[in-house]
Nucleic acid binder design. Sequence first.
DNA 1: CCCAGAAAGCTATGGGTCGTAGCTTTAAAG
DNA 2: CTTTAAAGCTACGACCCATAGCTTTCTGGG
Lengths: 194, 194
Amino acid sequence: MSPRAGLTTTAVVDLALEIVDEGGPNDLTIAKVAERAGVAAPSLYKHVKNLGDLRRLIDLRVVQEMADALRTSATGRQGADAVAALADAYRDYLRKHPHRTAALSTDPDRGDAELSTATHAVAEVVFAVLRPYGFDHARAVHATRCLRAAVHGFAGLEASGGFGRPEDVGESFEVLKTMLIQGLENLTQKEKER
Amino acid sequence: MSPRAGLTTTAVVDLALEIVDEGGPNDLTIAKVAERAGVAAPSLYKHVKNLGDLRRLIDLRVVQEMADALRTSATGRQGADAVAALADAYRDYLRKHPHRTAALSTDPDRGDAELSTATHAVAEVVFAVLRPYGFDHARAVHATRCLRAAVHGFAGLEASGGFGRPEDVGESFEVLKTMLIQGLENLTQKEKER
DNA sequence: CCCAGAAAGCTATGGGTCGTAGCTTTAAAG
DNA sequence: CTTTAAAGCTACGACCCATAGCTTTCTGGG
């Protein structure tokens, strides 16, 4: 089935991800991946359509991994606890892989079913965690967006070194989490006043 | 003083910014800027050290513009009002220029005095708005980080089309703002319990 | 056991970009 | 009018992407 039993698409993505993790997304090049694979550059096109396709596969992988990480972190927890776990998992993933931030803010191209599904999976985890709060649908969407935005923004800024000051970043994140959790509580209040 | 009285560095940055606004940061190329300037590509190097330098100048410009926008939005307002105005200004700027998001999450290179100053200017505006809350220094830093992270994250996701669902994004942002404002109130509470 | 045939690799090539070197032109200043 | 420095140019080398077309290797059917 495979002559030379060499590369596979997922192996190529693995190598590409190494490069991205080391030097950032702009450092990714077909030539470098080929070099790591021990193969001439054009050979890569047997496993990947082009550089854009490779980037998309990376995004897909990252989003899927994030969905897994979030799911794992939330299992066995509930309410504020689960929300905090989600936030920590998101931040931890981006601390381990600072250069993957951009992959998590890509909007799935219309017609890209795989990436759409993966993105949807992430949202589903958050939705599930928010269910006990009893929001109506619209409010749940708003809450999800706020959670994601705040945590993604924080982790992204941290990953790109945006917090110059010496104050402990972990403490700042604790503040953010309590803000968000109390914000959800308050949203619940409003829900009851309806 | 200037033969041909043609280009200047700021003019080059203007053109580069046009390209970024139209096609995103990765669409920026020395060749395209030169074409718009009506000049051969190598001529640009008389006004800009290289592509990296041009990118840095763009970031600088964007951060400065943002600082201005925030300052303007906050003048004449106080407390929760001022915070809301800040958030709106930040989001509005990125709605007008969606492709400038990345420029606002660059960490100033050690030794880049200009960019450091500009970044610092943004933080100063937020600090000033937070002053009436009476936080101690550390808490003010945490609060600033949270505000910036949440708003930047939201605006960034919105700019990159990350909110797929049909629910009104403006409403979501209102929710975020109340979360943040109430979060600041609660932080003040804790401050008093000290 | 052998021999298609497909998958995976290769070399060669064209087009695009960045950036440097070195020359020419222009305009400002004396 | 002359000098001079800034601003422009052409030529070039290095790197990258992507395609075309050939060669090798493995696999599976007869």
